[in-house]
Amino acid sequence: MSTAVRLKIEAIDKVFKRRDKPSIEALRNIDMEVAEGEFVSIVGASGSGKSTLLRIIDGLITPSGGRVLVDGRPVDRPGPDRAVVFQQDSLLPWKTVIDNVAYGLTLARVPKADAHRTAQRFIDVAGLHGFEHHYPHQLSGGMRQRVNVARALAVNPKILLLDEPFAALDAQTREIMQAELLSIWQETRKTVLLITHQIDEAVFLSDRVIVFSARPGTVREEIRVDLPRPRDLHVKRSPEFSGLVDHIWTLIEAEVRAGLRQG
């Protein structure tokens, strides 16, 4: 693995100002780096600002302080070097699978024939072959998230940002999707930053897991995952895997419980 830093986050703060209400400090002094080709996850209790950080990295919202660098260049707006796989359904319901996958390319004014050729390639990668002309409402939740992943990959970003991509799926489908994401990553060698609240998902997929504390979100601990690659679902039954999951759980358990009481 190359050691070049692809994504660098420097002293990011984010405070949400609200009218007539106290402002919310979502993130405080976040520093982190993601190397080229690395798979990094951020886990944390809800309220740890992890989705906010992802939106700052993508350039959808501006930080109150600090900066984001991609390959050493600061970024402050969405760009073709980053693509997001969103949490919920963010597919256009009036477009077919192939048009949805080609969406980012169409926005970038890639000619339709070229856009469809590229889209077709990622439809095949994501296991959507044969569903090109279906509409999102005709697909299962798992299939729709495949379209979301294919759409992000189709614009050929340097960094793939995943915002709890499998949170809405049932447990079995989620397991399958995790394994598929891993094999897609192994094929494409993208730099990946995954936001999740599933600790086992983070450990299974990542080279490194960053644990956030809540309110305000700060980096609590970074954990290197040295499980051998390529990994398959059996790795989840190994003692090393359980040890890592347990360790992360104890780090955030108190905050999850506090969050429960606050409702």
Binding site: D58, L60, R77, P78, G79, P80, R82, A83, V84, F86, Q88, D89, S90, L92, W94, Y103, G104, T106, L107, A108, V155
Partner: peptide
Amino acid sequence: RQLVEAARSFNATRLQIFTTVTFP
């Protein structure tokens, strides 16, 4: 708003957001 955010993350201009998301 989810669809608008997705369009923005793909670098859509305001006009593109209108023609590809809001209006349809």
